[in-house]
Amino acid sequence: MTEEIIIAGFGGQGVLSMGKILAYSGVMQNQEVSWFPSYGPEMRGGTANVTVIVSDNRISSPILNQYDTAIILNQQSLDKFESCVKPGGVLLYDPNGIANPPTRKDIKIYKVEGTEEATKMGNAKTFNMIVLGGFLKIKPIVKMENVQKGLEKSLPERHHKLIPLNLQAIKKGMEVVEEVK
């Protein structure tokens, strides 16, 4: 199994940390992983993206131009990366703020109302975990117990009290993700 993923959105949305939690979850089940961020002069409100690869085998290139899955969190990223999903691949997006939704017919398109559900949960910061939950429902490449371990590893100890909330958000994402036909 090799899953090549791009996660892209605004800086401050938790794009990089979502990728890190996913990558650490892979480490926890003894897989090979890589996490390669765009590290330009990004800032809150600018664009940010990260390439995450989780594989059973040695990873060749950590830098790619075609992906099995694109997780898209804003319009600019959708415009940039829709064409980079491999035929038969997956595009998962949060429709909040998307004026021109994806149009490709040769890939599977899913949406997850991350922004809306995070607001309902009363904590906007859980947004990225809701989206991650949506992804893990479509592609259960890492086990939930390893996601929990991944959270423990990637969050500093002082934030460990937030792990149950994050897990709850992941479960919510799994419930609300839906295929767009």
């Binding site: 890190k20 990558a23 480490v27 090979e32 992983v33 890589s34 996490w35 390669f36 961020p37 590290y39 990873i59 950590p62 830098i63």
Partner: peptide, 10 residues
């Protein structure tokens, strides 16, 4: 280089 410096791996 910047890629090896900035990326995370096991």
């Amino acid at each position: 280089d910047g890629a090896i410096g900035q990326m995370m791996e096991k």
